[in-house]
């Protein structure tokens, strides 16, 4: 099967580039190719001016990779894990302790120095993993779903750290399933079935959404849901309490009228109005689009 198909990526320096995409859309596969862990069957991957497969070792010294699954040693403590990584990257001996100390402070690991990674909470582990991935000061940081299973407060702090890194000149590629995180990226690519379905700054993506966004308030949202779902022009219906959030095909000239008419025919009283698109709408619109058949 083809996990990633004809993906063209340009990631600007000192920016956070986000990967958004459903499960199995090829986020991890792309990141692995950038690390030289997987070879593309066709085409080439250039990272920091080097071929990711042929010059993998050069590339690897300059990138930091945080795997989707925790991949430090669970039976080693914070300090032992960080020390191991520092040795493997051959950090200068004099600098080593100082850098590890700084990383511990930055990622609030001082209380966990002797705790084994296996006994840490999800958020603590993520912080340790990020500390390890940045210890050798990589120019490019590849983060594969770094904040899955992390509470909102910790996620905020995590992103603060990312912006600090960007400020210091690091380029970051991060994959996520969270819309709020995606919105914080400078640049975003929405992946679908191994292809880029949409790309751009989050704001621009929301403005240029390829669908009309309609909001419906009514007393019988479930019935309305079923009625609207059957319309060919409706791409998706999302229920939010007693409201419905509807994406309508951009070819429809007056989407509000269409919805209103349909609901009236079904005998449902409702209030219909057009609203601005959220990033989630962009995501749904991009990933629900039928794939154009490749020529």
């Amino acid at each position: 099967m083809t996990a990633v198909d004809q993906l063209d990526l340009e990631i600007p320096r000192a920016r956070i580039y986000g990967f958004l995409g459903p499960n199995g859309s090829g986020k991890s596969t792309t990141i692995r190719m950038l690390c030289g862990l997987l070879r593309p069957t066709a085409g080439s991957v250039q990272v920091l001016g080097h071929d990711a497969t042929l010059e993998a070792e050069i590339v690897r010294r300059r990138i930091g990779y945080m795997t989707q699954r925790f991949s430090l040693y669970e039976d080693l403590s914070t300090d032992e894990n960080l020390d191991f990584i520092a040795e493997i990257y051959g950090l200068p001996r004099r600098e080593k302790q100082q850098r590890i100390g700084a990383a511990r402070r930055e990622y609030r690991l001082d209380d966990l120095r002797r705790q084994r990674a296996g006994t840490m909470s999800g958020g603590q582990r993520q912080r340790l993993a990020l500390a390890a991935a940045t210890l050798h000061r990589p120019e490019l940081l590849l983060l594969d779903e770094p904040t899955s299973a992390v509470d909102p407060q910790s996620r905020r702090e995590f992103w603060e750290s990312l912006f600090d890194l960007v400020e210091a000149g690091t380029t970051i590629l991060v994959s996520t399933h969270y819309m709020d995180e995606a919105e914080r990226c400078h640049q975003l690519a929405i992946l679908d079935r191994g292809r880029i379905a949409a790309e751009g700054a989050p704001k621009a993506l929301m403005q240029a959404i390829d669908a009309a966004v309609i909001e419906v308030s009514c007393d019988q949202p479930r019935s309305a849901h079923h009625v609207l779902e059957d319309l060919d022009q409706v791409r998706s219906v999302t229920q939010l309490g007693s409201r419905l959030h509807i994406l309508v095909d951009p070819t429809v000239s007056e989407p509000e009228a269409l919805i209103r008419q349909r609901l009236r025919d079904a005998g449902l009283a409702s209030q219909v109005e057009r609203t601005a698109a959220s990033l989630e709408d962009v995501f749904v619109a991009a990933t629900r689009k039928p794939l154009e058949v490749a020529a």
Binding site: C35, G36, L37, E57, R60, R61, I63, Y65, T67, R69, F70, S71, L72, Y73, I85, I88, Y89, G90
Partner: peptide, 10 residues
């Protein structure tokens, strides 16, 4: 899963 990290180091 340690190997995935280990082989991306030098």
């Amino acid at each position: 899963g340690n190997l995935e990290l280990l082989i991306t180091t030098p």
